[in-house]
Amino acid sequence: MTKKGLFFTVLALTTGLLFSSCEKEDVLSKPVISGLEVGLNNSKIGYIGDDLHIEAEIVAEGLIDKIEVEIHPEGGDGKEITVIYTKHAGSRNATLHEHIDIPADAVPGEYHLHLTVTDKAGNSTTVEEHVELKVQVAEAL
């Protein structure tokens, strides 16, 4: 092989390596959470000693790993409630429909709800909603 031929061969190989190593890696988009409903008829109210309805549509290109719901007091009084769901793990699309138990000893007041979806690639998305926890009033007979 001539010096000129060797030069062009090395140039072609080097150029090929440069362009192949600079290709953009596939980046999965973060999970998408839509249509969040909290409480009966999306009232954003939960009753102590009862359960709190939560529903949302989830799309995760990187496949769902876990769904976490955290409810914490806005002002500091009260306990934090955390629930992790894995039953949708491995799914790309899911409808989350759950009823979270509100303990009988929960403190009434203003709370924040955080719904976080984490996919198998480690991407996560969080949506927040205001929730009021109330004492359920018994109906008169």
Rank of each mutant, 00 (worst) to 15 (best):
H88L: 12
A89Q: 15
S91T: 06
L133Y: 01
L113Q: 07
L115R: 03
L17V: 15
Y47H: 06
V10A: 15
E129V: 04
G39S: 09
A56C: 06
L133N: 05
V59I: 14
L133P: 07
V69C: 07
E74C: 03
D65P: 00
T116Y: 11
I33W: 11
E98T: 15
E132A: 01
I102D: 01
T95E: 15
P73H: 05
E80L: 10
A138Y: 06
S20F: 12
T116E: 15
E128G: 10
E70Q: 13
E139F: 07
V127W: 04
G122S: 05
T125M: 03
E68C: 01
G46D: 05
L63Q: 08
L96N: 11
G49S: 04
A56W: 09
L17R: 13
C22Q: 08
T118W: 11
G46V: 09
E139T: 09
L115W: 08
L13Y: 09
S124L: 01
D65R: 13
I100T: 06
G78H: 08
S29L: 09
E98R: 15
V83E: 12
V127P: 01
E37Y: 11
G5D: 08
P108A: 13
I45A: 02
H53Y: 04
I100Y: 01
S20I: 10
L28R: 00
D26A: 01
L36W: 10
H97M: 14
M1Q: 08
G39M: 12
L113E: 05
I64L: 01
E70W: 02
I45V: 14
K66T: 13
N41F: 06
L141I: 10
K3N: 02
T9E: 13
L18M: 15
N41G: 02
V38F: 09
E128C: 03
E139G: 12
H72T: 12
L40S: 12
A140G: 03
P103D: 03
F7N: 09
T95M: 12
I33V: 15
A94R: 06
V131Q: 03
V117Y: 14
G122M: 02
L36R: 10
I100K: 03
